[in-house]
Design a protein around this nucleic acid. Structure first.
Lengths: 208, 208, 208, 208
DNA sequence: AATGAATGAGCCTTCATTCAT
DNA sequence: GATGAATGAAGGCTCATTCAT
């Protein structure tokens, strides 16, 4: 029993891993069920067997636990909001860029933004909206009530835009600078930059 | 003869227009040759006849004149570099977001970043690399020599990231805020925000 | 043991019931093993386990007891052959049309005629040939020896053709006359018509 | 031009012929696009190219011209209604049974009755309903106003049931009587039988 | 003995491309 | 030079069947 379940679980897991890999590399349209199954070392019918359809596979491949955990642990931190923003940006960049990191949901998410599928509604509802709210709260903590709702929202967009740029534009940046590697040192430096840049931007707007 | 050439030219032009439209809406993979030809009111074989392949059509559909003109006119401006950055960001956002604007190259570009095709090399070489250089120069003018090459580059990324976010994440922002419309007032407000935010960020990093 | 055997028997029986239901509704090709197993509340493998294949299930699902009983009881009747023909047609129409009637073998049979499967040989041998013989005998009883073998056979065909028409053409008749319902009154009227019509036909041919 | 059109027309015609053949043999579900294309000696994509889909092919494969012509010419006949019924039945049986006759629409139709597809509505509307009306009229001419609407309808059913039986039950009859061949003599004999049988039946019911 | 998991052949359809004029 | 017709590779998906327990 447990062994059977174990085998199924393994196949499902291999499919999900392969799917995350292929979806994040090729996008939803570009990915083929056959390629995913090839990488998962299973047959073409297994996607439909386990997930009903390619759409269903995408929906399950998305799993925002790590993103949620990141926000939760950040809220529980004792540090001042500025420091928490720094920490958040660093962790978020690690999720986006660390190539050794198997959780590629954020990369799929990033792909989805450019190519909406039926799964986008779920992504927005379950992951992106809470993320925006979380960052909005953090910005508010930093500036008090010095910003209009629209300005606060735009500050969130500025922060996210900076972070996502490194993922979206990765193919471009690689071509502009072939030696580019996202090791931990580089990621730290990027996160540090974005945090400084953003805190200055937020404060500047709050003073006005 | 000239009439025939004229007809050929017209067909090419109609195909390029249709291709820009469809590519920017559906992405390269999502676009079909049939749909492009339907909109161009020509036969399905004409894409291959005129451009060799779908890839070839994409390569020719990209045309960076407006982007180049924008940079050129900006350089010729008398204003101070900060003011020129403000102007540039505003014009760039208009290119990215204005739906009345028929020049959709930037939108294709934005799509391409997330979905590299053989055309990406050309895009990077002819459009993105010069753009990065232009912005790097502008940042340098603003801060003097107070930034390392890496920091200067990251400032450029921060500016571009903020601007591109509104395009990449449009499907998401629409869902988060269904009433969102990119009219000229909204675009101006966004551009103003990004400029303020970025100048504060740049200055803050330069002082360190 | 007996309990296990009982469970096996129950599963077989549930499968056969479900198979008759689905085969008669969807035809052999249209029916899926999964749907049959779903209705029988068992696993998808059980059809092959118990019956070897989908074909095997069909072969076993066919059960002509009721048809045989009908003929047997008819022969044992005291009535005159004309009356027995009337009775037979009425009972046969009930088998074919009565929707409350769970014995759907005749409906499967009717489907099979248009779509021969490996099971058809069995159907012909065990059910149809005896039925034709039975009706041939009845016709002979009615007309004495006034008909050639070929004519007698064609009379049987005329009778069966009229009865089967209501089943075969049901989808058509429903469209031509949407209010059509095969309740007992309607079935009686149909049977009465076919009997009258056929007796007149038989007699007319016998006189010639 | 004409030659191109000719080639297209030839391919379409070959596809339609093959489709009629396969549909009438295997039914709509059982028929595969691949088999149809194989017989038409064209590629698998051509069905969708020429007819949009398998459904579209079926819709076009059905062509009731011959059936309509049959009714029209019958109406224009000078003979008495009884004689016209005889003629009609004979012509109709030729359509149904003559194996040298390439117009197998009626055979597809017969298949459809047992296995309704989206095309059945069209079939009923364009072919079957007019046929029933035509026969209803003929019955009325024969009996005057001596039959209720329901009885008249049932007489039509009795006639059609007898004729269609030879088609529907062909696989069965072949097994019961392996030497059976539908040559013109046999078809004539069958038609003669059905006509006699039916006229007797109609008259008998009218007298009551 | 019985079952859930897994399979691969085959389905219809779509597509960029090539062919034949 | 330009086009409608035709193509075959590949797409997602369904299905009866077999595997492994």
């Amino acid at each position: 029993m447990t062994e059977l379940e174990g085998r199924t679980e393994q196949t499902r897991a291999r499919l999900l891993d392969a799917a995350r890999e292929v979806f994040s590399q090729q996008g939803f349209q570009g990915a083929t069920v056959r390629e995913i199954c090839r990488r998962a070392e299973t047959n073409v019918a297994s996607v439909n067997y386990h997930f009903g359809s390619k759409d269903g596979l995408l929906a399950e491949a998305l799993n925002f636990n790590r993103l949620k955990a990141l926000q939760l642990s950040n809220v529980q931190q004792d540090d001042c909001p500025k420091q928490r923003l720094r920490l958040f940006i660093r962790e978020f960049m690690l999720m986006l860029l660390d190539e050794k990191n198997p959780s590629s949901q954020c990369r799929i998410m990033a792909r989805e933004l450019a190519d909406p599928t039926p799964a986008l509604d779920k992504i927005v509802r379950e992951a992106i909206a809470p993320l925006h709210e979380f960052l909005g709260g953090l910005v508010n903590e930093i500036v008090g009530s010095g910003l209009s709702a629209a300005e606060q929202r735009r500050c969130v967009y500025s922060i996210l835009g900076q972070t996502l740029f490194y993922r979206h534009s990765h193919p471009v940046l690689q071509r502009l600078n072939p030696r580019l590697r996202y090791d931990h040192r580089e990621i730290d430096a990027i996160a540090e930059h974005i945090a400084e840049f953003s805190l200055a931007g937020i404060n500047s707007l709050a003073k006005k």
